[in-house]
Amino acid sequence: MFKSINHVAIICSDYDRSKHFYTTVLGLEIIAENYRKERKSYKLDLKLPEGGQIELFSFSDAPPRPSYPEALGLRHLAFNVERVEHVIEYLNSNGIQTEPIRVDEYTGRKFTFFSDPDGLPLELYEI
């Protein structure tokens, strides 16, 4: 029935800061960027490696996430990586803190978490 994930939508508090994080630091390619005047909101479409997208929205009055990361709803967004250590080194060199590496007890694969500028939990999962 489902073929793949089409997109994940993220609402940010500071559009310029989040745009920089997702494009410059994480290296995601911009597909489209639109300012929606009636909503006073940006919508930035970012290309993920296997065809999916991240839609980055800015809304000035969005409420904060109630807790990290155990709030109801989407728990986190995970990215497949070849070597967790290499990506951690890159993120740390760009001032992004990461949690200690853990090992998935079911698959034996390494993973860790870091956060976007608004505290959204992001995961690196070694494939």
Rank of each mutant, 00 (worst) to 15 (best):
R102C: 12
K110F: 01
I88E: 01
D116I: 01
Y90L: 07
F113T: 03
T112C: 15
P117K: 06
R109P: 00
I96Y: 14
I101H: 09
V103Q: 14
N94E: 12
D104E: 12
R83W: 01
N80K: 11
Y106S: 14
F111I: 03
F111S: 00
Y90H: 07
G119V: 07
F114V: 10
G119N: 05
F79S: 07
G108W: 06
F111N: 06
G95K: 12
E82T: 13
I96D: 13
L91D: 08
N92K: 14
P100T: 12
E99F: 08
E89F: 02
I101F: 11
T98V: 15
G108N: 04
D118G: 05
F113S: 00
T98L: 11
E105Q: 09
K110R: 15
S93P: 05
D104A: 08
K110C: 06
N80D: 14
S93K: 14
E105Y: 02
G108Q: 06
K110D: 01
T112W: 01
V84M: 04
V87H: 07
T107L: 14
G108R: 03
Y106W: 11
Y106A: 15
V81A: 06
E99W: 04
Q97W: 04
T98A: 14
V84H: 03
E99P: 01
F79E: 09
P100Y: 03
F111E: 02
N80I: 03
K110A: 08
I96E: 12
I101Y: 07
V84D: 02
F114D: 09
E105G: 06
D116G: 05
L91V: 08
E105L: 04
F111A: 00
S115M: 04
K110E: 08
V103Y: 04
P117S: 06
D118P: 00
H86D: 14
N80H: 04
F113Y: 15
Y90E: 00
V81G: 08
G119D: 05
Y106K: 13
V87K: 13
F79D: 08
G108P: 07
E99H: 10
F113E: 03
I88H: 02
R109V: 00
S115A: 12
P100L: 11
N80E: 14
Q97C: 12
D104R: 10
R109L: 09
H86E: 15
R102I: 01
G95N: 13
S115G: 00
P117I: 07
I96T: 13
D118M: 01
E85F: 01
D116H: 04
K110P: 02
T107C: 09
I101T: 15
